[in-house]
Design a protein around this nucleic acid. Structure first.
Length: 96
DNA sequence: ATTTTGACGACGT
DNA sequence: GACGTCGCCAAAA
């Protein structure tokens, strides 16, 4: 029986599997968990991703439009874009 | 325990 | 394609 706590672990797990130089969407992760209707929860769970043990590359996770919606949750709003560009991802106007 | 909010997505207009 | 609205479910207040 999947506890709500497991939900984070699942989200963090999937997010961690994102290969370098590639970005994914919240909806994609939500579907991978079988919770296609809780796309928002994926993002909310990412806020919990601050845990260094999880080492979740949240900067590789964007919304369906490819917009860096969660950049404000980072240490600095520009950190996310910088990290993405550092991986070879071209970001313009907060869009990949 | 209840209400509000929110790293979103899908649909309608 | 831009804009508005609803739904979904968990976390924070």
């Amino acid at each position: 029986m999947p506890d709500t706590k497991n939900f984070y672990e699942q989200v963090h797990q999937i997010a961690r599997l994102i290969p370098r130089g590639r970005v994914t969407t919240y909806g994609a992760i939500a579907r991978a968990l079988g919770a296609a209707r809780s796309s928002r929860m994926v993002g909310t769970a990412m806020i919990h991703a601050h845990d260094p043990r999880l080492a979740v590359p949240g900067h590789r996770v964007v919304n369906s439009k490819g917009l860096l919606t969660g950049k404000h949750h980072f240490d600095t709003p520009t950190k996310m874009q910088q990290l993405l560009e550092a991986e070879g991802i071209t970001v313009s106007d907060d869009q990949v």
